[in-house]
Simulated assay, not measured.
Amino acid sequence: MSSEVRAVVAVKKGAPVEVQRIVVPDPGPGEVLVAVQACGVCHTDLHYREGAINDDFPFLLGHEAAGTIEAVGDGVGELAPGDYVVIAWRAPCGGCRSCRRGRPWYCFDSLNATQPMTLLDGTPLSPALGIGAFAEKTLVAAGQAVKVDPAARPEAAGLIGCGVMAGYGAAVNTGGVGRGDTVAVIGCGGVGNAAIAGASLAGARRVIAVDIDDAKLDRAERFGATHTVNSRGTDPIEAVRELTGGFGVDVAIDAVGRPETYRQAFYMRDHAGTLVQVGVPEPEMKIELPLIDAFSRGGAIKSSWYGDCLPTRDFPILIDQYLSGRLDLGGFVSETIALDEVEEAFAQMHRGAVLRSVVVL
């Protein structure tokens, strides 16, 4: 039988979210039903609410989640009821041209549940990033549910499902940060601090945090920043060069996604350095750079999608690092809230008062 559960729904563009009762089907072939234990409040959820991604309202929000498998559909052999999982929004299909070339982290046909979750009147819901986890239960493709060590607290573990993985992977996977490298990270929110933590764990000898907020810069030191630069009153390019013997960094990570921060990251690199953009820009934003600079400075300019991660490989690694005390996932959790407090969490996000509010069910 299907389940009737409480969930956070964005009914129309720009309107406050509502807690409604929705219908979640029993899992069909290749699907699993997850009892959600915790789900982080991410900027992407706010983008859905504001219609900045598409207009497929109503949306079932939430996607940074951990929980337990409640039921599995036909053909699901790798998961069983009671398994503790983190939900990924990319589940490689195994058959697209990218998967066939051995690059499943770029999968072009990521798997999702095929059955819709609905409002009580039968209206289909659009789940955020194919997950929809601001709900007591959610239905996802089996490939989206990644089994991890159940010792990890769900309010911390769920965050690797999106923001932490995006930032950590931007440094480790996309940027290829290695031992002895110098790194600058622009923007010290959740994604930026995860990039700082990833760079530190990868062995970078200098990790420079750049932001316009001293409180955020103080937090960045908790995650491994060795130096901080407040760019509100200081030229960050010159400051980063001064901290690297005049050369610039090996890897510059833009965790903001604005033309000015992209330009800063481009010019604070050493020659042949790497720029990684992980902050998501608005569609109308443009960047103009002298082509001679792009040529003469060399190196690489990369965009990082979901930290170029392979969830089945990377999620358990991050959980192990958390449980061993090397990755401070708990430090990303600013507050725990109930389902009916998500709208206020969006306001907290706007004020820059939190790294992550986390819904606990």
Rank of each mutant, 00 (worst) to 15 (best):
S2W: 08
S2E: 14
R6P: 11
K12L: 06
K12Q: 13
R21P: 10
I22P: 01
V23A: 13
P25D: 11
D26V: 13
V32L: 04
L33C: 04
V34T: 06
V41N: 01
V41G: 03
T44V: 07
R49Q: 14
E50N: 13
I53R: 07
A66D: 03
T68A: 13
E70Q: 12
A71P: 05
G75T: 11
V76Q: 04
G77C: 09
G82E: 05
Y84A: 02
I87T: 08
A91D: 00
S98N: 15
R100T: 14
R103K: 10
T114G: 13
P116R: 08
P116H: 09
P127E: 05
A128I: 00
G130P: 01
A133T: 02
E136Y: 09
T138I: 07
A142L: 05
A142W: 04
V146P: 04
K147V: 12
V148F: 07
A151R: 15
A152M: 14
R153M: 12
P154L: 13
I160A: 04
G163M: 01
G167P: 08
G176V: 06
V177L: 05
T182M: 09
V183F: 07
V185W: 02
G187T: 04
V191K: 04
A197V: 06
A199V: 06
R205G: 10
I212P: 05
D214P: 07
D218H: 15
R219H: 14
E221Q: 15
G224D: 10
T228K: 15
N230Q: 14
E238C: 10
L243A: 01
T244M: 03
T244K: 02
G246I: 06
G257R: 01
F266L: 08
F266V: 00
A272L: 12
A272T: 12
L275N: 01
L275W: 02
P281N: 00
E284N: 10
K286A: 02
S296A: 15
R297A: 10
S304W: 04
G307S: 06
C309E: 03
L310A: 03
P311S: 04
T312F: 09
L323N: 08
R326G: 10
D328K: 11
G331W: 06
E335Q: 14
T336H: 13
A338K: 15
L339K: 10
E344K: 15
A347N: 12
A347T: 14
R351C: 05
R351V: 03
S357F: 07
V359Y: 00
L361Y: 13
